[in-house]
Simulated assay, not measured.
Amino acid sequence: MERIDQRLSEELTGQVTRAVRETLRAELSEAVRESARKRKRTAALYAGAAAAALYAGAAVALALGLVIALGLPDWAAALIVAAVLGAAAYALRRAARPKRPAVPEAAPPMPSEPPATGTP
């Protein structure tokens, strides 16, 4: 009788364990799917914002070039706008780089004893 009770208890424990694992897997996969859906939407919105900002920047550069072209030749206006945009890109790149710690210049090591001459 004890064997049957023990066997039924083990079988029931195994079934409950499997049921709990399956339920947890289903819940976890649903939570992961929902999180991925939200992140995908956020990424798409950021991509759209970046594209709009790119076009806005191009429009500002064009407007600046047209304003400068009122007083200068077209090629000079384009050159000035290109130089300004290049300087802005360089400044942004320098700001994005991590700061390197200053490395002090090391003096060559000084021997603590005079070198041996090799003859006694």
Rank of each mutant, 00 (worst) to 15 (best):
Ala53Lys: 14
Leu62Lys: 04
Ala89Lys: 05
Pro73Asp: 11
Ala61Gln: 10
Leu45His: 06
Ala88Trp: 06
Tyr55Pro: 00
Pro73Gly: 02
Ala78Arg: 08
Ala61Lys: 07
Ala91Arg: 13
Ala47Ile: 03
Val84Glu: 06
Leu72Ala: 12
Ala59Leu: 12
Ala69Lys: 07
Ala47Asn: 03
Leu66Ser: 10
Pro73Met: 06
Ala58Glu: 12
Val67Lys: 09
Ala77Asn: 03
Leu64Met: 14
Leu85Pro: 00
Ile68Tyr: 05
Val81Asn: 02
Ala47Trp: 04
Leu85Ile: 07
Ile68Lys: 03
Arg93Pro: 00
Leu92Phe: 09
Val60Asn: 10
Gly71Cys: 05
Val81Ile: 03
Leu79Arg: 04
Tyr46Leu: 15
Ala61His: 03
Leu72Val: 13
Leu79Lys: 04
Ala51Tyr: 11
Ala53Thr: 01
Ala76Gly: 00
Ala56Asp: 12
Leu66Glu: 14
Gly86His: 10
Val60Ser: 09
Ala50Ser: 08
Ala56Lys: 11
Asp74Val: 15
Trp75Tyr: 06
Ala51Thr: 09
Leu92Ala: 15
Ala49Cys: 10
Ala51Val: 12
Val67Ile: 11
Ala77Met: 03
Ala49Ser: 10
Pro73Thr: 09
Gly48Asp: 09
Ala58His: 05
Ala47Thr: 07
Ala69Asn: 10
Leu64Gly: 07
Leu66Trp: 11
Ala69Met: 07
Ala69Pro: 05
Ala78Tyr: 00
Arg94Asp: 06
Leu54Phe: 04
Gly65Cys: 05
Gly48Asn: 02
Ala56Met: 08
Tyr90Gln: 12
Gly48Met: 07
Ala77Ser: 10
Gly57Met: 05
Trp75Ser: 15
Val84Met: 04
Ala61Leu: 09
Leu79Phe: 13
Ala49Glu: 12
Ala59Tyr: 02
Leu79Thr: 14
Ala47Lys: 13
Ala63Gln: 12
Leu72Asp: 13
Leu54Lys: 07
Arg94Gln: 09
Leu72Ile: 07
Leu70Gln: 15
Ala77Trp: 02
Gly48Glu: 11
Ala63Ser: 14
Ala82Gln: 07
Gly71Glu: 14
Val81Trp: 00
Val81His: 03
Ala87Ser: 11
Asp74Pro: 02
Val60Cys: 04
Asp74Gly: 14
Leu79Tyr: 04
Tyr90Arg: 06
Tyr46Met: 13
Ala63Thr: 03
Leu79Glu: 05
Ala50Arg: 10
Ala78Pro: 00
Ala91Thr: 01
Ala51Gln: 13
Tyr55Gly: 13
Leu85Phe: 00
Trp75Thr: 13
Asp74Met: 15
Gly57Leu: 05
Gly71Trp: 12
Ala59Trp: 02
Ala49Asp: 09
Asp74Ala: 15
Val81Cys: 02
Leu62His: 07
